[in-house]
Structures are given as C-alpha cells and as structure tokens.
C-alpha cells in the first residue's frame, strides 16, 4: 500500500498570471479534457468505420505562439479571410490546448463508392481525373500546389472529418471546457506540419478559463485584446509612476498628506 502514501499533496490553481505554475496546473486539466475529446473524435461515426484520422495535440506557450504566427502569416495571403485569421490568432494565444484533426485518406485513398458528393455525376472520376494516378492508385508524392490545400479531395472522407471534429467538440462541451473548431487554425497547423499525413486539417483550440476566448470578440481584436491592454498598461504605468507622483518624495521618510489630513493637523 506504499504507493498510496504518495497520493497526497496540494496544488494551488489560478488562471493568472498566464503560464505561471498555478496556471500551468489549470492547463494540465484542459489537456486531460483534450485527450478525452480526442477519444471521442476517434470513436466518431465514419463511413464504414474505416480508420482515417490523424490527430495532434499542441500545448505550451511557444507552441501556441508558433501556430498564432503562422495564422497571421496566412492572413495576408487572402483578403477574404484576413480579419478572421487575425482575430482567431488572438484566440489561439488565449487557449490552453489545440487539438488538430486531419483526414489522411481524403487525397490518397478515397471511399471509391461513386457517391457523387465531390463532383456530381462524374462520380469518383472527378477526384481521380484531378490528381496524378496510375491504375486507380493516387500518387501523392508531388506535394506542390497552387492552392493552400491540394484538391480535389474525396468529399465522403472530408464529411467523415466533420463528424470527427464535432464529436471532439461535443465531448469538450460535455466537460464544460470551451472549444471551437477553426479552419484557420487547422490550415496553420497543417502548414507547420501537424497531422503530417492529412490533406485537410481542422484545429480545435480549447480553454478552461472564466471567459471563453472564442466569443464576444470586439472590433480589431488583433489590436484590442487582453495582451495588448496589459502591455500598454506596462508601457504607460512605468512612466506614470514617475511623472504623476513617484519622483516627488522619498517614500522612506515622507508621504504627501491629503487635504483632509492637513486640515486635521
């Protein structure tokens, strides 16, 4: 029973300051939730129950920053998604964990059921004619692409990724952890190399803080957010304590009296 003697301790937990030991202990619990969400994703219903999911768990200040910066880089490649990507990069910085989920069959091993979802009446020919193939085998070794994602993809597989993504989010909601799936996060993760075998990736940042990072987003969020507010406070108050009051007395021996105190002697 000796091992149970070690089962004791105390852990102080607080979400502030960010990345402090007390915050990291909090984040550890989100990581557990993320792993359970991953389980839910892996058991999501997919066509034929065929294994097809790549997953990547990413956490830690530097790792999240890397994803956010990649999103900011991608933001400037398309005006239509610029605002969205910049806003969502802030959300990533405020997250605890990102769960990346990708489909590694969508580009290489389609469902081959002639379902018609990808291109209509052409059936699977739509995908096979759009890719390099030999006798029904798709050659994926040429990874050059004019577009951010190299299509066409098997839509039936992509559809399955939708189920997978939603099951993960369902689990986070059941655990009362805030989460939301993003295309921007997924694309950035894919470009960094997460879910290395997948042709399409979604990113699900998760957070267990008092305010969900994924809702109530103000205008120009990449300029007006908690990090910027705090940094501007640091920038200004350093000066304020000097100019407004600090250099005008010696706190060890002096203290300015209020008018009320002066009046009362």
């Amino acid at each position: 029973m000796e091992r149970f003697d070690q089962l004791r301790g105390e852990e102080y937990i607080s979400e502030w300051p960010r990345h402090s030991p007390q915050d990291l202990r909090r984040r550890d619990a989100t990581l557990i939730a993320a792993k359970l969400a991953l389980n839910a994703a892996m058991t999501a219903p997919v066509a034929g129950g065929v294994p097809q999911i790549d997953a990547h768990l990413v956490y830690g200040q530097e790792e999240l920053e890397k994803v956010a910066r990649k999103m900011e880089e991608l933001a400037y490649t398309n005006n239509r998604w610029k605002k969205r990507f910049l806003n969502e990069a802030v959300m990533v910085r405020e997250s605890d964990v990102i769960l990346f989920l990708g489909n590694f069959r969508a580009h290489e091993t389609p469902l081959d059921a002639m379902c018609g979802l990808c291109g209509g009446e052409k059936g699977c020919a739509f995908v096979y004619e759009g890719r390099e193939t030999k006798d029904g085998l798709i050659d994926i070794t040429d990874r050059r692409s004019k577009t951010p994602i190299k299509g066409p993809l098997c839509s039936a597989r992509v559809s399955d990724l939708g189920y997978v993504m939603a099951s993960a989010v369902w689990m986070t909601q059941t655990l009362l952890v805030d989460a939301r799936p993003f295309m921007s996060v997924g694309l950035a993760g894919q470009k960094i190399g997460y879910c290395p075998n997948s042709s399409i990736v979604v990113g699900i940042p998760m957070s267990s803080t008092s305010k969900s990072p994924y809702q109530d987003i103000p205008i120009d969020y990449h300029l007006i957010n908690m990090d910027k507010m705090i940094d501007n406070t640091r920038k200004n108050f350093v000066v304020n304590r000097q100019t407004a009051s600090g250099i005008n007395f010696d706190y060890r021996t002096q203290y300015p009296k209020s008018r009320k105190e002066e009046k009362n002697g």
């Binding site: 999501a44 379902c115 018609g116 979802l117 209509g120 009446e121 990724l161 939708g162 989010v169």
Partner: peptide, 28 residues
C-alpha cells in the same frame, strides 16, 4: 453548370468546409 448532376447517392460539387459543418450537424 453541373448542378443537379448526381452520383449514386449525392449531388456535387461540394464545398468541403460547408460539408464539414453539415457533418458536424449530423454528428451533434
């Protein structure tokens, strides 16, 4: 041009991101 053209089960082409949203609805 191709709308209404169907494969054995569904119509196409399909926007992959809207498709994932649809699948998410089914999953929920």
């Amino acid at each position: 041009e191709k709308k209404g053209g169907t494969g054995l089960m569904w119509g196409g082409p399909t926007c992959n991101w809207k498709l994932m949203d649809f699948s998410a609805a089914c999953d929920f």
